[in-house]
């Protein structure tokens, strides 16, 4: 049995988890900084980095307690080393390397995007490959095909804003506060998703995404129709985003012959996206795997699980390795 501690500090969650053999989650602790950033309407890197530095030691200690484990039970320590906010990543990387040095066990630097892909295996180790995975968050929007032996093909990604960013910006404009995703999700439940016909950017145009134009369309519509019901705007905007996301995911799955549809990332917590994905999967004749929300949003378990695979294939990461703020997904083509 191999027990790995995974640390995640790439954005605004300070998280740590202990996972056995890449799939058995013994503990997972997430300390969210949402409240610290709320008044600024977005994540402030310097505030995030300071908070990570204050929180990481306690979050690691809590993950150990929750797992009923001692530091000496660990076989390796992993941290997300990119992509993400430079100063934030360095806190997690420093914490993990300090533990690896002190405990004399391997350190593993993990790619955040690869970790989101691994959440599928954490949810269901028997999931059928290839997977078509939609990673969608405040920082990322991409469709990846996952094949045997952790081989990845990036099929499409956003050319401007990430979907989560569009949610935040629209929510801010509508006066719904931060973070925008949950606020719009909540309000949209009372609204009519067909009330306003917002554009579906690049719907039938390859597999890349664009959300900047949709965001602008929402702004214009509300300026022109000041009396519009905000809940209808929220529902119609959300519907347009979900339409595009699912069309690209299913289209990519068709093209690549993927067996399973998967979502990950913070926006994968969106209730409309989740229910519509189940429908889309039925229509397209393949199952959908929806990892529980705690595995979709940033967490330490996905870092620890990915580290187990990476340790077996690539061995430890040198202690002289730092962070890589614009790290890309390692793809095969």
């Amino acid at each position: 049995m191999v027990a790995i501690l995974g640390i995640e500090t790439s954005c605004d969650e300070t998280a740590a988890a202990i996972v056995d053999d890449g799939h058995d989650i013994r503990s997972s602790v997430v300390s969210s900084q949402v409240d610290l950033h709320a008044r600024f309407g977005g994540v402030v890197p310097e505030i995030a980095s300071r908070a990570h530095a204050e929180l990481v030691g306690g979050v690691v200690a809590e993950a150990l307690v929750e797992a009923g484990a001692d530091l000496t039970d660990l076989d390796a320590v992993a941290a997300c080393h990119g992509p993400g906010l430079a100063g934030a990543l360095l806190v997690g990387v420093s914490a993990a390397k300090a533990l690896a040095l002190t405990l004399d066990i391997p350190y593993v630097g993990v790619n955040h995007l690869e970790a989101h892909l691994h959440a599928a295996w954490l949810e269901d180790p028997s999931v059928e490959l290839p997977l078509a995975v939609l990673i969608v968050s405040g920082g990322h929007t991409m469709v990846v095909i996952v094949e045997e032996d952790a081989r990845y093909r990036l099929i499409g990604q956003t050319v401007d804003d990430a979907a989560g960013e569009a949610f935040d910006k629209v929510a801010r404009f509508l006066g719904l506060g931060y973070p925008g995703g949950p606020a719009i999700d909540r309000l949209a439940r009372e609204g009519d998703p067909t009330a306003i016909e917002f554009p579906r950017p690049m719907l039938h145009d390859g597999f890349d995404f664009s959300f900047s134009g949709l965001k602008t369309a929402v702004l214009h519509h509300v300026r022109r129709h000041p009396d519009v019901e905000v809940r209808d705007v929220a529902a119609s905007f959300q519907e347009a985003v979900v339409d595009v996301l699912l069309a690209k995911l299913v289209g990519a799955a068709d093209e690549a012959g993927a067996r399973t549809l998967v979502i990950g990332g913070g926006v994968a917590a969106n209730s409309r996206l989740r229910s519509r994905l189940v429908e889309a999967a039925e229509e397209s004749g393949r199952p959908a795997l929806l990892p529980r929300v705690a595995l979709c949003t940033d967490n330490g378990a996905m870092i620890a699980a990915t580290a187990w695979w990476r340790l077996r294939s690539d061995g430890p990461t040198p202690l002289g390795c730092g962070a890589f703020p614009s790290l890309r997904l390692p793809t095969t083509d």
């Binding site: 530095a53 030691g57 530091l71 914490a95 300090a98």
Partner: peptide, 13 residues
Amino acid sequence: RVGVTTARLMAQA
């Protein structure tokens, strides 16, 4: 942050 975090986690361990 690198120095303080490294020192803290070492002391903690």
